[in-house]
């Protein structure tokens, strides 16, 4: 009576080959499977940078003033940082420094100081690309406080 058609060694060999193949596939996916950056993901990366700079500036700011599309933050040492929106570009200028372009390709945007005490500043940015997400958030003037 025939008890089988494949030797146990063959079965174990097939198992080994399968596991080796799956492992190699995992390694291949890990090394080459990173998704390609898209325009939106690049924009979100830029938003992250803008957010971090704004947060750092507001952490030190004591007062905020707005003239049209320019927001000026002043810290306790009377050092100022200006954020300006012009021609679809968001720029940041520190005291004695040059204007640094933080974001371009904007459709519209603005700064709003919340009344009555002016301790909160809202910022909104709408990109020209209608499929790209806008940026909207607010920051409290911390003046060195946490």
């Amino acid at each position: 009576m025939k008890r089988g058609f494949v030797g146990v060694e063959t079965v174990l060999g097939l198992v080994f080959v399968c596991m080796l193949g799956a492992t190699l596939l995992s390694v291949y996916q890990f090394t080459t499977g990173q998704p390609q950056p898209t325009t939106t993901s690049e924009l979100i990366g830029t938003y992250h940078t803008v957010f971090e700079r704004l947060r750092a500036d507001f952490r030190a700011a004591v007062t905020a003033s707005r003239v049209r599309d320019t927001l000026t933050l002043t810290d306790a040492a009377q050092q100022t940082v200006s954020w300006a929106l012009a021609n679809g570009t968001l720029t940041r200028t520190a005291t004695g420094g040059q204007a640094q372009v933080m974001l371009s390709g904007l459709h519209s945007g603005g700064f709003e100081i919340a009344p009555p005490d002016g301790q909160l500043v809202s910022i909104w940015l709408v990109p020209a690309d209608s499929f790209a997400p806008p940026f909207f958030t607010s920051f409290a003037l911390r003046g060195g406080k946490r």
């Binding site: 089988g4 058609f5 079965v11 174990l12 198992v15």
Partner: peptide, 11 residues
């Protein structure tokens, strides 16, 4: 000797 069904299931 070929592999039995039991051995196949075990594997």
């Amino acid at each position: 000797r070929g592999t039995s069904l039991f051995e196949l299931l075990l594997v």
